[in-house]
């Protein structure tokens, strides 16, 4: 029958323990996955650096970065540096990974965070609108438009937008985060002006998938018996839609948003390339291509923490949004 909310402490400590194990496993994977890819940080230099270096020199470099040591030794070093919050130096860029990440994350969040929020809001609003008026002109128009966007190559789409709004109309800059040599309020406005188009496009990308999920989920909820009962109670459509339907969409919406927030720090590779932005997307891409282990490890570490934090937040919100789930957790 009624279950009192008593085992909360046990639940939380249980949860913390499981998160700790998850983090450890991911940290381990973050170490091994880069090393399982063909080649190592030196192989790429064999290409570009052949201009300057003799081949034998690469082995000296390997030794310098400790890459010649047995894997388990490197792993222990990796763990002990992590314990000291030491992320090491980028092999390819010769900068402190920590500094590199901090700068990139700041700009990436400035770009992606608003996009996730705007994209989510747009998806929720349009998805609900289309879901409630399924089969209407508006619904069909929006759904086919967003489906088209969802399946279109994003680089091409973004390029077309740049070419229209930045190149032909000249409303926005062609790229970067700022014009340079500005200070104070005008600098902030300048950054906002630079971010407008990339955020708009990224929001659209973020919105497409969520929109489709919301719309379908609304269709499904409208068919539920309790919605019929709500109508039998003489509630207006507005009340039914806003209170009864949307409330039921929230759990799903929260989990998608959590995922989007979790992956936020992985940046937006395509948008970064199109708008020449130095964000996490290109950082990770370059690091993977050049097998820059320390950067990969550092970036994946940050990503891990974001994902887990988002997951944790989603867990909490999910429990609030759907009482059945909160109860199911209590009983664990």
């Amino acid at each position: 029958m009624l279950r009192p909310n008593s085992k909360t402490t046990l639940y939380i400590s249980n949860k913390v323990f499981r998160y700790a194990i998850t983090i450890f496993i991911i940290l381990t994977l973050n170490f091994f996955i880069p090393r399982m890819m063909p080649g190592d940080p030196m192989t790429n230099m064999l290409g570009e650096g052949a201009r300057w270096m003799d081949k034998a020199y690469l082995d000296e470099l390997r030794a310098e970065y400790g890459l010649d040591r047995p894997l388990h030794e490197q792993y222990l070093t990796y763990l002990s540096s992590l314990a000291r919050f030491d992320l090491g130096y980028s092999i390819n860029k010769s900068l402190k990974v920590k500094d590199l990440l901090m700068e990139r994350i700041f700009w990436t969040l400035l770009l992606v965070f608003p996009s996730v929020i705007i994209g989510g809001a747009v998806a929720l609003i349009l998805g609900s609108f289309a879901g409630f008026r399924q089969g209407s002109m508006m619904d069909r128009l929006m759904t086919s438009l967003l489906l088209l966007l969802y399946s279109s190559p994003s680089f091409l789409f973004a390029m077309i937008m740049v070419s229209i709004f930045s190149f032909h109309l000249g409303w926005f800059p062609l790229g970067n985060f700022a014009s340079g040599k500005m200070h104070g309020a005008s600098y902030v406005l300048d950054v906002a002006w630079h971010l407008f188009l990339p955020i708009a496009i990224l929001s659209l990308f973020e919105a497409t998938y969520t929109y489709l999920v919301i719309r379908n989920s609304i269709t499904q909820i409208l068919g539920e018996y309790f919605i019929f009962v709500a109508r039998a109670k003489g509630l207006s459509n507005r009340v039914i839609e806003l209170q009864h339907v949307i409330r039921n969409v929230l759990p799903q919406f929260i989990s998608i948003m959590a995922l989007n927030f979790g992956f936020m720090v992985s940046g937006a590779l395509i948008i970064e390339i199109v708008f020449s932005l130095n964000g996490m997307g290109t950082l990770i891409y370059d690091a993977v291509i050049s097998r820059d282990y320390p950067v990969m490890q550092g970036a994946f570490l940050v990503l891990t923490f974001f994902l887990i934090a988002a997951n944790f937040a989603a867990d909490l919100l999910y429990g609030i949004a759907d009482p059945r789930i909160a109860d199911a957790k209590d009983s664990i």
Binding site: Y225, F226, K233, N248, P251
Partner: peptide, 30 residues
């Protein structure tokens, strides 16, 4: 008329309430 002059006691009790809203709230809203 609905839920005012005429009240329906719907047919399948366990799926008649909205799962994410408390019983009290669902009665009060009516």
């Amino acid at each position: 008329l609905r839920g005012g002059l005429i009240s329906l006691v719907p047919q399948s009790p366990s799926s008649s309430f909205n799962p994410v809203i408390t019983i009290g709230k669902q009665i009060e809203e009516l």
